[in-house]
């Protein structure tokens, strides 16, 4: 897998208007997605994961949403200032997206065939017959039996898992370079979840499509991601290689998240949960955003906002003052953001 970045997000800040104030939902995040990579973005509800992904597609409803700052660089081109017309050529063609709710994400009044072929014909000059052939091919690719019959069916005739497969087929219609999956398995039951994840991993291998997988489920991340970004309250708090993050997490938030994953062997009586709630956007002005819930909190955390510190391991970064205290703080190589 090459390390050539295909999508770069630089210092992205997105705010939502609430009353007269603009409240930041995503506050200065930067990351890169490499070619053929599966990148996980993890965080609680309200941490800004979905806003990040919708912004990448320029699908933020505006107003109330507003991109205040930042660059989105796709294949070396800044997407910030291109026209809506050019955006339409990218959306669904080079960058495509699947959503959390397969039950409501397909239009109930049009057949699967209609919706699939629409996606294909938008970005190609296929005839109807060609688009039909391609649709069947796509449906087979996502593992749908009796693909031809399903073309004339309506979404309500299919199960959630089937619908999500169709959403994936639709997103893959034009061989996108990047696929953004916003909690694609949250609404599905566990066995179907595993199938969908396997499918995505398979597609990633077959087509070399880079995937951004947004989830709050660390299990999902462990399953298919190579790299992970942990978000908290609109900021990246830790990022790195999936192994490093899972085995050797540094940020107390990540540690808390990992502790709160249920253990199948059931050794614990009570599941760990991080005390407190994510702060409402715009309510915190100074200090570390996690300070109020952090078990390791100390003086400095209340006043200063920590930077993203680079760790020894390649690409591992943590936004926490803690590790500067640790012996041999030479681990701390430098400040990145």
């Amino acid at each position: 897998m090459s390390n050539k970045p295909i999508l770069q997000i630089k210092d992205l800040k997105v705010s939502f208007q609430s009353g007269k104030k603009f409240v930041p939902a995503v506050d200065g995040i930067s990351f890169e997605l490499n070619e053929g990579e599966i990148l996980g973005i993890v965080g609680e509800s309200g941490s800004g994961k979905s806003v990040t992904s919708l912004t990448t597609m320029r699908l933020i409803p505006s107003p109330p949403g507003k991109i205040e700052n930042g660059e989105i660089i796709f294949e070396g081109k800044d997407l910030k200032n291109i026209s809506e017309k050019e955006w339409r050529k990218i959306r669904g063609n080079q960058i495509s997206m699947i959503f959390q709710e397969p039950m409501t994400s397909l239009n109930p009044l049009f057949t699967i065939g209609n919706q699939l072929m629409e996606a294909i014909r938008l970005h190609t000059d296929f005839s109807k017959a060609q688009a039909r052939v391609r649709s069947i091919e796509l449906l087979k690719l996502v593992g749908i039996p009796r693909a031809e019959g399903i073309l004339s069916e309506y979404p309500h005739q299919l199960s959630g898992g089937m619908r999500q497969r169709i959403m994936i087929a639709m997103a893959m219609a034009c061989n996108p370079r990047v696929l953004i999956a916003d909690e694609p398995t949250t609404a599905l039951d566990v066995t179907i979840q595993a199938q969908i994840l396997a499918l995505m991993k398979d597609l990633n291998k077959k087509t070399n499509t880079s995937i951004i997988l947004i989830t709050h489920d660390l299990g999902v991340v462990a399953e298919i991601c190579e790299r992970v970004i942990v978000m908290y309250s609109g900021k990246i708090v830790e990022q790195g290689d999936v192994r490093t993050i899972l085995k050797n997490p540094q940020h107390p938030y990540t540690i808390g998240l990992l502790k709160s994953v249920p253990d199948l062997r059931g050794k614990k009586d009570r599941l760990y949960s991080i005390p407190g709630n994510i702060p409402a956007p715009g309510t915190l002005h100074k200090g570390c955003r996690f300070a109020a819930r952090c078990s390791e909190v100390f003086g400095r955390c209340k006043d200063e906002s920590p930077e993203l510190y680079k760790m020894k391991n390649d690409g591992h970064e943590v936004r926490c003052f803690l590790h500067t205290l640790k012996e041999g703080s030479d681990e701390h190589v430098g400040v990145t953001s």
Binding site: K89, I90, R91, M97, F99, T104, M170
Partner: peptide
Amino acid sequence: KSDYIRTARAKGLR
């Protein structure tokens, strides 16, 4: 406001 409208937009539809 519904999800399928977002899907349609995400396709790159006019």
